[in-house]
């Protein structure tokens, strides 16, 4: 295959990763932005989403589409509820202290991971995609008769991968609308800007924190459900996803949703392209190097606001 079609394929793979990463990192960014909690267990909520998707599809035993839709609804709800429980029983008791909550979420990471190992096992298990039609992609060539389209061998994607990209775009647009247009979003933003003043105007800040922690986990779980037909569910899958999410929110600016999405596209696309043309390891090295550069030259991230 020529370079051009190869690049298109790499971009598509990168876009799928960017879509999933943007969803997951948005949850991490939301939690940090509103609560100032660095949730080290965020990757485990992603893993739980994937595992729950497998559990739901296995238990239901219906058609692939019904199973998947059920997983898409139930897994984020279950994982979100578990996160709310974790918030009320652990983080609230620590008064959301930034340092102590880091240690607490590290503990939560190991608890969730080991419980998943005990209950789900060490195997990687697939979830059947609701649809998976292979779609051949066209490319252009300049011949004697001018520009013409042709279908190079091997240049294809699946309908499910395109669905993942579209679903992430719709969900992120909905999240943005929710944050900027709804009363609940206004309450979250007011809490993010000044929790004490939010309390002084009748906002139950601890309840907002619990819901935000749950919503952040639900977003990670949604990402987990979307990726599991492509990657399979495994109890250790949260580690890499967490690292990439941290890279994305640091580059985008902690707490900035717009920055998170831009950084996810940047990291996802570069990961996809570099992985296809070179190696996945090189992609991770470059992403980590990018974080180091951002931390040195723009510590608040591309879209973050410098703390006064």
């Amino acid at each position: 295959m020529e370079f051009g079609p190869y690049l298109l394929l790499a971009c598509l793979e990168g876009a799928v990763l960017a879509a999933v990463l943007a969803l997951m990192a948005s949850g991490l960014s939301l939690v940090f932005g509103v609560m100032r909690v660095v949730n080290v267990a965020h990757g485990e909520f992603y893993m739980l989403g994937a595992v729950m998707a497998w559990v739901v599809t296995s238990v239901l035993g219906g058609g692939a589409v019904i199973n998947f839709v059920a997983a898409l609804i139930l897994a984020p709800l279950i994982v979100g509820a578990l996160a709310v429980l974790a918030d009320v029983t652990i983080l609230k008791r620590l008064n959301y202290d930034p340092e102590r909550t880091i240690v607490a979420t590290i503990g939560l990471l190991y608890i969730i991971q080991q419980l998943a190992l005990m209950g789900y096992g060490p195997e990687a298990r697939p979830v059947e995609p609701p649809f998976n039609t292979r779609i051949a992609l066209p490319w252009v060539e300049w011949g004697e008769g001018g520009i013409s389209l042709y279908f190079p061998w091997g240049l294809s994607t699946t309908s499910y991968k395109l669905f993942v990209i579209a679903a992430a775009v719709v969900l992120l647009a909905a999240l943005r609308l929710f944050m900027t247009r709804s009363r609940a979003g206004l309450i979250m933003r007011a809490t993010q800007l000044d929790g004490e003043m939010a309390t002084a105007f009748g906002i139950p800040v601890e309840r907002v924190y619990a819901l935000v922690f749950g919503a952040g986990a639900a977003l990670a779980a949604l990402a987990g459900v979307l990726i599991v037909p492509i990657q399979q569910a495994h109890y250790l899958m949260g580690g890499d996803a967490l690292l990439l999410s941290f890279i994305v929110v640091i580059i985008g600016g902690l707490g900035s949703l717009a920055g998170t999405v831009v950084a996810a596209v940047l990291i996802g696309m570069s990961d996809g392209i570099i992985s296809v043309f070179f190696t996945p390891t090189l992609a991770k090295i470059i992403a980590t190097l990018l974080v180091a550069l951002v931390l040195v030259f723009r510590p608040q991230g591309l879209f973050g606001v410098r703390e006064r």
């Binding site: 009363r183 206004l186 309450i187 933003r189 007011a190 800007l193 003043m197 105007f201 009748g202 906002i203």
Partner: peptide
């Protein structure tokens, strides 16, 4: 709430 608009600050006040 410095990043919110005047209208949104008033809206937060009306919440209580």
């Amino acid at each position: 709430f410095a990043d919110l608009s005047v209208a949104q600050n008033i809206e937060v006040g009306l919440g209580a």
